[in-house]
Design a protein around this nucleic acid. Sequence first.
DNA 1: ACATTAATTGTGT
DNA 2: ACACAATTAATGT
Length: 208
Amino acid sequence: MILELKQLFGNIFEEALIHEIAMVSTLREVPEDYMLIDIGEPIKGIPLMIGGAIKIYRENPNGDELLLHYIEEGDSCTLTYAWEMNASKSKIRAISELPSKLIMIPLKQMELWEEKFPSWRNFLFRSYQTRMDELIETLDSLAFDGLEKRLINYLAEKRRVNGKNELQITHQNIALELHSSRVVISRLLKKLEHLGKIKLKRNEILMV
DNA sequence: ACATTAATTGTGT
DNA sequence: ACACAATTAATGT
């Protein structure tokens, strides 16, 4: 685990911190499509992403979900940290998009580190900031963009995260993640296909 | 190989 | 949004 930590965080964290992290944390590897935490579950710790990608969802009381953003290697889920203080129940759902590797840090240690290691405070702060920026971005998109633009963004982001042009996904799934309906997504995708932006197959979308 | 069923996608109203 | 048709994949016999 020290190896992975040094690789990704060697420049950010001091040696002593890396060792402390390695002492108290556990390395987890999860397959694709694995739910790491669901809404309402108690938060056990904060993840440091080593590899892969995780989708973060929000859900309303009716059970409608909405994809908020991804976290990727080098990221942490600082949102969790922000509200872990008061309520220790998760307000989000996290599902792996790819097979992923992550280090789970128990909550207890983290407060100590804030005092002890400036680099840790820094990391939290920076991570927090980028996360907020991302959230604002998706919020803007929700508020001001039409569904078509959101769909295009979604596809582009998915291609980037997966690193390939063939996206294995059903229209129904896209509809759920964007909080739309299947029919609407199908129609928009068809339109995009006619525009030559994508090619549609069953269970797969080819980005051009 | 064939029939049946379920899941996914396309289209009209 | 709803209903239905068409297509494709999965499963059993």
